[in-house]
Design a protein around this nucleic acid. Structure first.
Length: 503
RNA sequence: GGCCGGUUCGUCUAUCGGUUAGGACAGCCCCCUUUCACGGGGCAAAGACGGGUUCGAUUCCCGUACCGGCUACCA
């Protein structure tokens, strides 16, 4: 069997960072590669619009690490086809661009950006193509000597797209897609600064790195004919990878591709992890920092455009690797729904055990100034509160009071119905609890209720004050669970404290 | 404008010509819970439109509409 090499390749978004669509492309690549026993290759454009985005490469790798999608080859991991950075491969691209010109499949163009701009103003919907290239300033029809002279000035290389040819290819998701070459324009392959455009780089790199399958977003579909033509013109048609164009992730409201701005606007993350734009120093919150588990993030991403045909919606990365099938990837784009995204996280919090959650929860509590040293207590607490946490950040509110006394007590909620009888009860409760030898949930509850009836009080009207004494407000799991977990000394201390406030 | 792609409940989706069109999120109601949640049960909610093909179309074909993508010396 021929070895498969499945690569994902993308640039950081204009401001850096890596958003949902990008990670999903990586995920599907990864799943397909692992499933087919192939290698998963990560390629990263190191420049964005000619600008090197500082930290982007490292950021992307950290993101993938968090998701558990470790590449077999990448700019930072290295690999047999180094260098992997586009900027370090400049001379390679130039060589192939020249080869194309020599073979008559491409030509030099000398039009300045200003001239092109003027042309676009003059002619509506101007396209540099087979119909217009004759009237432009390029090497077509010029003598070799004249061309040599012109080459001393800045110039680009453009592909020479043939007239009226049908370009067909089979997409793994969409089936057969065809274009007429008359609709395709003469795209720039090599820029004046010597850097390749995506069109040239992707073909050359995929060939040299022996890529067998390539996934990318649907927005690339219109430029597929350019790439097909290049594979043919470079004489590599037999080795062309199989393509899959993934559906887009759309804005939850309105229409269009999901962008970073939508997240800012609607209050949810679109990047996997926090990203600080080196240019503006502006930080965009990521799913990780928002309190998502990587398991949930990967899960929700996979379900955005794929399902296994059953009603099951919860999949681990391992399960996804087993069940994923490219044929079941949807053709249409999906609107992103943050509520559903949170639901996945909630499901994963419930699913994971205390041991798997403890590190993350510890981190959340540390942010609140709580240093957890009692691991046994922590695992008890997690078991007690995890069902009520949707995001990891919810653990702070749900669990801090187990580790430190509440900072404020909602006295206003007790005061109106407070009287001497209740005061008596709690004073006696302190004594009773202090004397108790057993400190289990059932014993605490039993003692509490017996004491209540001895005082001719209904447990119901005492539970809420007790809760507020222990946690500070009307929230948290069962009161006796809390008392049992925090221990005798602390329970008594908290009752005392509130009693003092009520005087 | 041109080209390419898409179209099932509000949203994500199941259905490989025959189903009371199923599930999940969100919404609403009930139960559980002497807190807040979780959970359990229920309700409401969909085949864009028009033509074919067929005994029978959500499903296959064509057209229309709508939505999206692309149309840079950006990816």
């Amino acid at each position: 069997m021929m070895s498969k090499k499945i690569r994902v390749r993308f640039a950081p978004s204009p401001t850096g960072g890596l958003h949902l669509g990008g990670v999903r492309t990586v995920l599907f690549n990864y799943l397909f590669a692992k499933q087919n026993g192939g290698d998963f290759i990560l390629r990263i454009e190191d420049t964005d619009q000619g600008r090197f985005v500082e930290g982007a490469e490292d950021y992307i790798q950290r993101t993938l690490e968090w998701c558990g999608l470790t590449p077999d080859e990448s700019p930072l991991h290295g690999g047999p086809y180094a260098p992997y950075r586009q900027s370090e491969r400049k001379s390679i691209y130039r060589q192939y661009a020249v080869q194309l010109v020599d073979a008559g499949y491409a030509y030099y163009a000398f039009d300045t950006p200003e001239e092109l701009e003027a042309k676009r103003k003059e002619v509506a919907n101007f396209q540099y193509n087979q119909f217009t290239r004759g009237e432009m300033n390029n090497s077509m029809g010029k003598s070799p000597a004249a061309i040599q002279e012109k080459l001393k000035l800045p110039h680009v290389v453009r592909i020479k797209v043939p007239k009226d040819e049908t370009i067909v290819f089979t997409d793994m998701i969409r089936g057969e897609v065809s274009f007429n070459s008359s609709q395709v324009d003469d795209k720039v392959l090599l820029k004046a600064d010597g850097m390749p455009t995506y069109h040239l780089a992707v073909v050359v790199d995929d060939y040299l790195m022996k890529i067998s399958h390539a996934f990318r977003g649907e927005e690339w579909l219109p430029s597929a004919p350019v790439h097909i033509l290049l594979w043919k013109y470079l004489g590599w048609e037999a080795e062309m990878p199989q393509w899959a164009h993934l559906p887009l992730i759309l804005k939850p409201d309105g229409n269009g591709k999901l962008s970073k701005r939508d997240g800012d606007r609607l209050g949810f993350p679109v990047f996997a992890m926090d990203w600080t734009d080196p240019a503006t120093k502006e930080t965009t919150t990521g799913f990780k920092e928002k309190g998502f588990l990587p398991e949930a993030f990967v899960n929700l991403l996979a379900m955005l455009g794929w399902n296994d045909g059953s009603d099951n919606e919860i999949f681990s990365l391992t399960e996804l690797t087993e069940k994923f099938s490219i044929e079941r990837v949807h053709k249409g784009g999906a609107k992103f729904d943050y509520e559903k995204a949170k639901w996945y996280n909630h499901e994963w919090i419930k699913k994971l055990g205390g041991e798997q959650l403890s590190a993350a929860v510890k981190k959340e509590l540390t942010k609140q100034g709580v240093l957890v040293t009692n691991d046994l207590l922590l695992s008890k607490v997690i078991a007690l509160v995890k069902d009520r946490c949707t995001l990891l950040t919810d653990f702070t509110e749900q669990a801090v009071f187990f580790f430190k006394s509440p900072e404020s007590i909602d006295i206003a909620a007790i005061q109106p119905k407070w009287d001497e009888k209740k005061n008596m009860f709690f004073t006696e409760l302190i004594r009773a609890y202090e004397l108790s030898v057993l400190w289990e949930v059932q014993d605490l509850e039993k003692e509490f209720k017996e004491l209540a009836s001895a005082n001719q009080l209904k447990p119901g009207e005492l539970m809420l004050p007790f809760r507020i004494m222990l946690v500070g407000g009307k929230f948290g799991p069962g009161v006796f669970d809390i008392a049992a977990a925090i221990g005798k000394e602390e329970t008594v201390k908290r009752i005392h404290h509130t009693l003092g406030l009520l005087q």
